[in-house]
């Protein structure tokens, strides 16, 4: 691994030293960029601009009467004031779900990468298998699993782990469980990809240099799997923070997340505040991701 990397490094230096042929690079690159750029312009850039400008419309407007652009920054203040609780709840739920995904997903990805032997492919298929059914259907089936007459609740009641009138469904626990379940594969797959690339000889070298299995994990395996952990965290946290299906199907009015409110506001035609909340959510997530990636320092990894 190190040898090939050194080789690549050498190649870069050579490339930098060589005179670059300017003609050859230009056109092909831009042509290849074109479809993607076009797609992003139509389906990302334009909607984002529309969303941001909608968030500044006069909230007095309606779908029937139309909206007018009044640079109404107050929409943001109103949104945070009215829905700050749900906002905070979304971030906390997403964080809990992400932590749960790491705790469940890391051992699983580790086992698939290093211990599964000939079962590796089967296990990977099993991780992806839930995607063969719809997100909605899978979440609905959690209603049955966590329901008051379900096997789980009955067992917990028998074991006295849950009070006689305890519930699982329609609790924060149910919402976080649903989020964890739905986003677990997004944690496992990048983690697996990262772990699988680790040369087991590095761990052997660690043992040889007096690192116990735990120290070798902490000093070698974990840092080398950081790119996967960071990717998995982002792929879990970002959609979880904006999710409303789990809160809708597994929660109650007191477990509503910001996604539910935005959905309702759009449904009720309160476009400007809904848009303002969406933009805020986006900005907060981008800021958090930025800080997280800076802290995790993945750019330093090979």
């Amino acid at each position: 691994m190190s040898v090939s990397a050194a080789h690549l490094g050498g190649g870069e230096q050579q490339q930098a030293a060589a005179v670059e042929p300017p003609q050859k690079r230009g056109v092909t690159g831009y042509i290849l960029l074109l479809p993607g750029a076009l797609w992003l312009t139509i389906f990302f850039l334009v909607p984002t601009i529309t969303l941001v400008s909608t968030s500044l419309y006069d909230p007095a407007g309606s779908v029937e009467t139309g909206y007018s652009m009044t640079w109404h920054w107050q929409n943001y203040v109103d949104g945070i004031r009215d829905y700050g609780v749900q906002f905070g709840r979304s971030l906390v739920y997403a964080l809990l779900a992400t932590v749960a995904c790491i705790l469940l997903g890391y051992p699983l990805a580790y086992a698939i990468a290093f211990k599964s032997g000939r079962w590796k492919n089967l296990m990977l298929v099993l991780v992806i298998a839930p995607f063969f059914t719809s997100f909605l259907v899978r979440t609905l089936s959690w209603q049955l699993l966590l329901g008051d007459n379900g096997f789980l609740v009955e067992t917990l009641k028998t074991l006295q782990l849950l009070g006689p009138d305890g519930h699982l469904l329609a609790t924060p626990f149910a919402v976080v469980t649903g989020l964890t379940y739905n986003f677990l594969p997004f944690m496992v797959l990048p983690l697996y990809a990262s772990l699988e690339k680790i040369d087991p000889r590095l761990v052997e070298a660690g043992h040889d240099l007096y690192a116990s299995p735990f120290t070798a994990f902490r000093k070698i395996t974990l840092p080398l799997s950081m790119p996967g952990l960071v990717a998995g965290t982002l792929l879990t946290f970002i959609p979880a923070a904006g999710d409303y299906i789990n809160a809708e199907l597994l929660g109650t009015p007191t477990t509503r997340m910001i996604g539910n409110e935005i959905q309702d506001l759009f449904g009720a035609g309160a476009y400007p505040v809904a848009a303002a909340l969406s933009v805020t959510l986006m900005a907060v997530i981008v800021a958090m991701v930025f800080l997280y990636v800076r802290r995790a320092g993945t750019e330093e990894l090979v």
């Binding site: 000889r201 070298a205 043992h207 007096y210 690192a211 090979v302």
Partner: peptide, 20 residues
């Protein structure tokens, strides 16, 4: 004896330097 308890060290064929 576990490898990390032995007063023995190895220079590996592929060097196995820690890339991080």
């Amino acid at each position: 004896l576990r490898p990390y308890r032995r007063p023995v060290n190895t220079v590996f064929q592929s060097y196995a330097l820690f890339p991080h």
